[in-house]
Amino acid sequence: MADQTDIPTAGNNTSFLAHMRYAIVSNPVTLLAMTLFSVIILTAVFGPYLVPYDPLASTSQALIPPSWQHWFGTDHLGRDVFSRVVVATRLDLTISVSAVALSFVVGTSLGGIAGFWGGWLDSTFGRLMDTIMAFPLFVLAMGIVAASGNTVQNVVIATAIINLPFYARVARAEVVVRRQAGWVQASQLAGNGPWRILFGRILPNALPPMMVQISLNMGWAILNAAGLSFIGLGVRPPTAEWGIMVAEGAGYIVSGQWWLVLFPGAALMLAVFTFNLLGDGLRDIVDPQRRT
């Protein structure tokens, strides 16, 4: 039955949107993930303009529990927790997106090259990645940020470095599988040089599994950035950032002021959850085989 293609199909390049809609609607989990993702993106973009209070302004109304006035309550300096959680979205998302983008580009290129040419290149890159993996990743990130300076930029770089091996390995495996495929030989016959074959032909075909990796890593990257600021590296107070907020609120749990920690923690969890859910949906969208 697989061969009976005489049924008219809507599948060509113009119907990518239609396919995207299908992928989203056919899988309720994808729909949920996409909805949450849109909420997070919108929050990051418009949040700072919509929040009711200045996230950095201290007031005398410290440690007020959630109320109609302050939805998520106020912290020890009287700052509105809701405003701070919303404003922090942009920073956390920026850190994780740029870190993931960086490690995706570099990791995929290194892994693709290693897999495509093999030999000593493969061995060298492989051992390099093994070396990175040999460290406890969070400790490595701590070390990088501590050594290179306490800035947001360095947090991004550190997060990118610890995620590098995952992309390199996935890309290498996907390239090795496809390197000998008939269509790769055919594109060689059609006059394509090795670079074009690797980056223009093989790697785009490796996108579906890479997408799953990306969405998982986004979650980790957010956690990582929050974790670094939790221990005082990277972003510094009074900047609104989920990790810092959790760190600052941690002391108040004992005395019953749970809202300082709960809301930024919940935001963090929701973001990680969304990215993890998103993986399968993204894969379905970029996979041409699903475009029946």
Binding site: N12, G182, Q188, G191, G193, P194, P204
Partner: peptide
């Protein structure tokens, strides 16, 4: 490696065994 860009590349062509395997899944 150099033959890919050689002028004779076009004069020597091949039809592969498995029509499915010989087409890039992302290319129309």
């Amino acid at each position: 490696q150099s033959f890919v860009h050689h002028e004779m590349r076009g004069a020597l062509q091949m039809v592969f065994q498995d029509p499915t395997d010989s087409l890039n899944p992302r290319f129309s």
